[in-house]
Write a protein that binds this DNA or RNA. Structure first.
Lengths: 128, 128
DNA sequence: ATTGGTGTATTATTGCACTGATACACTGTT
DNA sequence: AACAGTGTATCAGTGCAATAATACACCAAT
């Protein structure tokens, strides 16, 4: 059975669409929202929801398979594989690039750490 | 006189090189490290330091001029213009996209706010 | 066997970022 | 006047992301 993930795509952010998909699925797995044995929504389904090309989704799925997060079952779909890594380590590893970028920019702006905290505090409560 | 900014470029991050340059110069201005009247390093100079094409730097400079941060003096170079905005607002505005992306990813990973703080605490002290 | 659901290979086309080389207009200094 | 230093227009070429339309191989259920 396919799961309904709530995938978001931002076409204007500069990041490639297929990479945004890869990253989000990785996070959902690391979080535990996707468990071993779960099935990803079909390429055509995702493409329809996000108004993008099925082949773009396929490219993301191939990347996920290549990285070992997912298994391709012929004629069925993509199945989440059991992870061997520690969830906490995995989460930190996935968040690291954006974390570093945020700190880099904040420092280049001359912000203090407490100012940075304040901004995060705000943003954290913002969306519902 | 040209200033020696310490510009960084990450070719593998997916973000366009010219956009990375635009963003960094904007931050340096917002911080006050670049003041009105200061001159940006020449396109050829930056290109040489970062091993990129002078036309890529020129594209970034044109973008900065278009956004009103810098003035093009013929035969001289790019001169920083006086800003009318409040520095604090400007800083928050520039940091906002990355801030939102960080919070989005942290939440999608199921992290608590305090866990996010802890990671920032770490990363903040990491580089020198 | 047929149908409808998987993923995906293929080909062609578009758009963008970037490079490389060349050339031009402008300015300040000599 | 000559020169070296600005920015940049131009043209050609490369690489990558994404789209679009087909078509194929596979599986499950009827």
């Amino acid at each position: 059975m396919q799961k309904n993930l709530n995938l978001n795509i931002n076409p204007n952010i500069g990041t490639a669409v297929f990479k945004q998909l890869v990253d989000q699925v990785q996070r959902l797995i690391a979080r535990g929202q996707l468990l071993a044995g779960d099935q990803l929504p079909s390429t055509r389904e995702v493409a329809k929801q996000l108004t993008i090309n099925p082949m773009t989704v396929s490219k993301a799925y191939s990347q996920l398979e290549l990285e070992g997060h997912v298994e391709r079952k012929k004629g069925i779909g993509m199945i989440v594989k059991a992870s061997t890594q520690d969830p906490k380590e995995q989460q930190e590893s996935l968040l690291k690039p954006t974390l570093k970028e945020f700190v880099f920019q904040a420092k280049q702006l001359g912000l203090s750490k407490s100012e940075a905290y304040k901004l995060i505090e705000q943003s954290w409560s913002e969306d519902e």
